[in-house]
Write a protein that binds this DNA or RNA. Structure first.
Length: 168
DNA sequence: GATATGATTGTTACA
DNA sequence: TGTAACAATCATATC
């Protein structure tokens, strides 16, 4: 439970929304900016041996397992979901191909593992298109989050009404 | 039947 | 700086 509280980490939109504020509704130019910005960041992390970090974390943590998932941990159903990362977009494509080539393997555990290995072998140029998509989605998420916060501040009772249907 | 788990990486925010 | 949580997916397991 405490995790969820932590998770509410909230107001993340405040900082990120700043970025999105720079690119309000916009087209390619700003998209480019976004892409470049994120690209640099991504490149850095991509170049960094993120792998060891992950493994280290995993090994050190012994994977508590019951940490994620839970699905409806979101306090507010109307709160925008976190956008998928570049890797997740790649995972979508990869899964389709993987299942075509390996119809017997349906477990996301195996697919995820294979996808992770493939991802590590990909070059930054190959990944950049996924980073681009993820960046756009993140900008959308920031805007949605800002809007969500604004609405909440204005009066979330309206939402409670909607929520009532959720009651069921 | 409903919900959790596993496996992956990236991103974000807090301590 | 490090760490924890969560995003998608879906067969499988558990309750």
């Amino acid at each position: 439970m405490a995790k969820k509280a932590t998770k509410s980490k909230k107001s993340r939109s405040s900082s990120t929304s700043a970025a999105s504020a720079k690119n309000p509704s916009t087209p390619s130019n700003q998209k480019m900016v976004l892409r470049v910005k994120s690209s640099e960041k991504m490149k850095r992390s991509a170049q960094q041996s993120v792998v060891s970090e992950r493994e280290k974390r995993r090994t050190s943590k012994s994977r508590p397992k019951s940490k994620q998932k839970k699905k409806n941990t979101r306090i507010d159903a109307k709160m925008p979901k976190k956008p998928p990362t570049a890797f997740f977009y790649f995972l979508e494509d990869f899964r389709k191909e993987f299942q075509e080539q390996n119809p017997d393997i349906k477990s996301m555990r195996d697919i995820g593992r294979a996808c992770g290995e493939k991802w590590k072998t990909m070059t930054y140029e190959e990944k950049v298109k996924y980073y681009d998509i993820a960046t756009e989605k993140r900008a959308e998420f920031d805007r949605a989050m800002a809007d969500y916060i604004k609405r909440k501040e204005n009066g979330e009772d309206q939402e409670t009404e909607d929520d009532s249907e959720f009651d069921e």
